[in-house]
Design a protein around this nucleic acid. Structure first.
Lengths: 191, 191, 191, 191
DNA sequence: AATGAATGAGTTTTCATTCAT
DNA sequence: GATGAATGAAAACTCATTCAT
């Protein structure tokens, strides 16, 4: 019998390598060979487990989204008040675990990929819908009917900060981003 | 007999074709042949005038940025109050002339290109700096030292709305975006 | 505890799977994986038993030829007259047991493989020589020196009918083929 | 202006090279690079003019069929009697211009390709139908209702002789093949 | 000025084959 | 005996770029 159960290990390694490679290159124009090399396997194996380059990209995008969702979920689980729920969502969005240069670079590339790829578009829609819904749900008790507007605005602000931090020459700083969104929200809630 | 003065005409046609092609494809992964065909010339001529594909992309990016800057400049020229200056900047950002699906698609692609291409990064920095500086300059008389923070926040919101509208399944709606930013600003100014 | 005597079983299963796969695909461009899957084993095992893909193909070709030869031999064993011997050869060539779509498809592919592969060519020569010799031997008492010519002609007719039936959109029909060859022979013998 | 009108020249050269390469290799498992090299161009150009390897193969098959049809047509044009028509068809089938080792090898490979490729199958059907129809048409005045049977038989014999000559170690000999078919026909007509 | 011809490097993908267990 | 893991060579195909005319 051969080494068994390598598949999940390899898949995980290849997904990590994909994100790292996109992050390092800043583009999706990377080769399967680069990814495979980074993961320490042959390019053939990458195809064996994923079928093709696009499937690998989509798997990486899904992974990034899942990690983000997990982070938010964990935060929401312990939040007791609407205000705390809001903060959990925002903190999750910029949590240190996902707010690394590589991950941000991948996010931004995946965003734009959604313009040309059906699967990426569907995945992005899920993310966008969930973020909006989470925000609105937390805002409703606080601002009533204005929740929809404010939720959309906040979602845009979050993505805009992602963009800015991703493109800024400085190292990404999640805490600053969190403060910016929360201070914006606090002002809106007070008003 | 060579037609004289074709250069600016060809260059403009090729730049327009580039933006249209990126917009249609949703990606920078378009071929020089596609661009040339859309512009009604041969691919050889495209190289003749631009040197290479990258130069064409950069020229298109520069064009998009220039159009945007022109729009803002025109608005600022007639603005009499700080509040009017703010509105001019925001209106310029979502002016109908530049807020078409093709242009938005190109913008987003150029944003992300700035992650991997030096020239694109430099161009993006110029845009980012100018937007920030315009906003802060207009905000200073209104909120004093808070102008920097609020400017950065507003810039992020603007880019975030670009992203959202670009990725939304609905047709882009500049007026809604303008209203969202202005209502945000008004709230912040009142507070 | 290793199962004993698996080798002949596995080999037979793999050979059958090879023929079925070639028949289904209509080409030798099938993968070892497909064959192995059809045989219900791993691709590694296929190599273990056969050494390589080419060896598997040759084993399949040999198998098909042997089955054909067996069929003819059985017919000849009970044939009492030269005419009966002739009919036995022809019947054997289109015997229901070998004249299935899969087998015909494999035959045709093996024929053409003989153009590029030494081993396949040698195998084909054996088949061709035996068919010719069988036919001539049976014809000699009937047509004397014309046996050689008529034998060659008949052999060509048999192979041509194989080709036609293999490529015809209708289901292969051995009886018709037998009748065609026999009526041809009868006419030649009468004349 | 560049060298104009190269397309038909290149296409012809590539088709010839394809047939020569298949003939030399005895298989369709040849690379586009081999074909291109033989034609004296780059592999990129081959793709440029044909779209892909399959299209090249089909173009070559079509070419071979056309040359054959032309040969038969020329013969039929001057044939005055049914017997002469028959001979024209047979002579055309084994005309020196098409009965070279390369062409025969290509024919046989294309025959078998018809088992797995839709386009090849359609092309082959055209050829088969035409040969049959030509033969039956010429036979009808001579043998009446038996024309269909005899036509099918003769077609099979012709293809069978192709196969035999293609696979024979000796150099192809059209004259012998012609004599074999004609003597067969003469016998059948007499009877 | 402008074109279409032509190249060739680079990428994805497939698959026979090997091997540790 | 048997497997699934893993490799890497080979091939199709794309496309930016160059060039003769």
């Amino acid at each position: 019998m051969p080494k068994l159960g390598m598949e999940p290990i390899r898949r995980a390694a290849l997904i990590d390598a994909t994100i790292a490679e996109i992050g390092a290159a800043g583009t999706l124009d990377i080769t399967v060979g680069q990814i495979a090399r980074r993961a320490g396997v042959s390019s053939g194996l990458a195809h064996h487990y994923f079928g093709g380059k696009d499937d690998m990209l989509m798997a990486a995008m899904r992974h990034v989204m899942r990690e983000y969702a997990r982070e938010v979920r964990l935060g929401l689980a312990v939040a007791q008040t609407p205000r705390a729920r809001l903060e959990a969502i925002v903190r999750g969005s910029f949590a240190a675990s996902n707010f690394t240069p590589d991950t941000i670079g991948s996010w931004l590339n995946f965003y734009v990929l959604a313009l040309s790829s059906g699967p990426a578009r569907r995945l992005h829609r899920i993310y966008a819908k969930r973020l909006r819904s989470n925000l609105c749900h937390a805002l409703r008790p606080l601002v009533g009917t204005r929740a929809d507007n404010l939720g959309a605005q906040t979602a845009a602000l979050i993505d805009g900060l992602y963009l800015h931090q991703g493109l800024s020459p400085t190292v990404p700083d999640g805490d600053t981003a969190i403060r910016q969104v929360m201070s914006h929200l606090d002002r809106e809630l007070k008003g």
